[in-house]
């Protein structure tokens, strides 16, 4: 077992991407994810890769598009306002069946918002965000250690489905230091894909990136796309269940707020109130299968750091509208266990 090191969440994401074989990064600074660029600005050269501080987020995502089209494990990172700017490029990655990893270290608010911890990008991350018929796989780690493991998984899933994968981190996990064990380095062979763009001689078939999807897929494009999304929904739902089976109220939380939600379950049970927790690890596909375990539940309650309760709709869909779904939220900080317990209890009245 590797020795534990104390590492910031953002730096752990960066190091883990290199260990997953990524040798191309282009991005633009924004708090609270700037440590990723800072770290890679020296570290990427040490492992023989390419680091570009682009002139904008648009440029960052489109350079990733180019590197992904060539078969590289490429990634970019941002936070809220900068992530919005990447949407066009992510839509293009999806349309082109290209694997890439995009990390959003969430902060609070719409518009400029503020630089502090938040979970305000759920809707944008899980609904596609850009134009057209697409969604992306969205993974939500909740510790520095899980950051490391999630990056590896993100690249693997991106290549399995030829699809962009988003990591939904947040300032809480990004800025925090925790002990972490790093995995060994893996090699990525940039020449292993037959679809990657390459030069060709006159008598060889063209190897280009087909932006116009109906040219690539002909008339079966709708079937192709439907199957891809159905396969992802069927195979890739991931979650953690904690004390769910006998719980009267089941909390649903991801990322930073899921850590407090888990603590809340313990506190509530010490008081004789049976709480449980479903922690979505994939935000899309939403882990609908997890809700079958909630056999004693009378209500569900999301715990989020935003104002509108962005995950509530997905819980209603996953439970087919049969239960009340509450929202324990707080814009400025992770809700306290006492607040969460009070909100959950009120749902039983």
């Amino acid at each position: 077992m590797a020795e534990k090191v104390l590492m910031k969440g953002n730096e752990a994401l960066a190091e883990a991407a290199l260990r997953a074989g990524s040798r191309f990064y282009s991005g633009y600074p924004i708090t609270p994810q700037t440590e990723i660029l800072e770290y890679l600005s020296t570290r990427m050269a040490e492992v023989g890769g390419f680091f570009v501080q682009a002139e904008s987020e648009l440029c960052g995502i489109n350079m990733v598009f180019g590197a992904a089209a060539a078969g590289a494990r490429a990634f970019t990172t941002s936070s809220g306002p900068g992530y919005s700017l990447k949407q066009e490029g992510i839509s293009y990655l999806a349309a082109n069946d290209l694997p890439a990893v995009i990390i959003d270290v969430m902060r609070i608010g719409s518009g400029l918002g503020d630089i502090f911890m938040g979970q305000g990008d759920y809707w944008q991350l899980t609904r596609g965000g850009g134009h057209g018929d697409y969604r992306t796989i969205v993974l939500a780690p909740n510790s520095v250690q899980e950051n490391v493991e999630t990056v590896q998984l993100a690249f693997d899933l991106a290549e399995k489905y030829l699809h962009p994968v988003i990591i939904a981190s947040d300032a809480g996990i990004g800025q925090m230091m925790e002990p972490v064990e790093l995995p060994d380095f893996k090699d990525h062979d940039i020449n292993k894909f037959d679809w990657a763009v390459r030069g060709c001689k006159e008598d060889e078939p063209m190897r280009a990136c087909q932006n116009i999807y109906y040219a690539k897929h002909s008339t079966d494009y709708p079937e192709y796309l439907t199957k891809k999304y159905n396969d992802i929904e069927e195979n890739e739902q991931r979650w953690e269940s904690y004390q769910v089976e006998d719980a009267e109220v089941v909390l649903v939380a991801y990322g930073s707020s899921s850590r407090v939600a888990k603590d809340t379950v313990d506190t509530a049970r010490e008081q004789g109130f049976k709480l449980g927790l479903i922690r979505p690890i994939t935000l899309w596909p939403f882990p609908k299968k997890a809700f079958a375990e909630a056999k004693a539940a009378k209500a569900f309650c999301t715990v989020e750091v935003n104002i509108l309760g962005q995950m509530v709709d997905d819980v209603k869909l996953a439970t087919e509208g049969k239960f009340p779904v509450g929202f324990a939220g707080n814009f400025f900080a992770i809700p306290d266990p006492d607040e969460i317990i009070a909100t959950a209890k009120a749902l039983l009245k």
């Binding site: 534990k4 104390l6 708090t31 630089i115 800025q175 925090m176 230091m177 925790e178 002990p179």
Partner: peptide, 16 residues
Amino acid sequence: GMDLGKNVTWYPSYGS
């Protein structure tokens, strides 16, 4: 703390 085998977290102030 980590070397004593404890769980630890460190969090900076990073506001303006």
